[in-house]
């Protein structure tokens, strides 16, 4: 099963390498990984989507916790959380189907952010399901290029997050 794990780490050089090394060294499967600053400049948040059975997921969390630079590990999956990803999709268009493509993009609340005679570049945010659905609908027109950020996530406010290392 897929889990979304949020990791607060010290914002220092080399931390990303430690986390990435942990995943490759132990053969964990990363689906996506994002890193960025947080409200505290000394802290970065990584959002990692990872697959595996319960025992593997338990190891992933424990191993992440064990890294000295880790402040907190939150497995979002059992919680209420907000999950978003951004995609830029360059889709082929022609005089005959422009309208149709625009309609599809509108339904998904996407934006067309660049236009050429033969392409639209679409910006869309949402859960990965939503982005997958849009991609499927755009596929028949021809997708020339595409980039996805990977998921970022935050838990919903009314929930408490477990403090680090209480096990």
């Amino acid at each position: 099963m897929k889990h979304t794990i949020s990791v607060l780490v010290e914002n220092k050089p080399g931390v990303l390498a430690r986390v990435a090394g942990l995943f490759s060294g132990r053969g964990f499967n990363i689906e996506s990984l994002t890193v960025g600053e947080t409200e505290d400049l000394a802290v970065s948040r990584m959002t990692i989507v990872v697959g595996g059975d319960d025992m593997i997921l338990e190891q992933v969390s424990k191993q992440l916790n064990k890294l000295i630079d880790t402040i907190k590990v939150i497995d979002m999956t059992d919680k209420q959380f907000i999950n978003r990803e951004l995609a830029l999709i360059k889709v082929s268009v022609n005089a005959g189907n422009r309208g149709e493509v625009m309609q599809v993009v509108n339904i998904f609340r996407g934006k067309i952010v660049d236009i050429s005679s033969k392409t639209f570049t679409v910006e869309v945010t949402g859960t990965d399901d939503k982005i997958n659905a849009l991609l499927e609908l755009l596929m028949p027109f021809g997708i020339k290029e595409m980039v996805r950020t990977g998921a970022v996530a935050l838990t919903r406010e009314w929930q408490k997050e477990d403090p680090k290392k209480t096990s």
């Binding site: 025992m55 190891q59 424990k62 191993q63 916790n65 096990s167």
Partner: peptide, 11 residues
């Protein structure tokens, strides 16, 4: 002492 050692290979 190491939580990672627990339930790593054996439940």
């Amino acid at each position: 002492i190491d939580p990672c050692s627990i339930s790593k290979s054996v439940r």
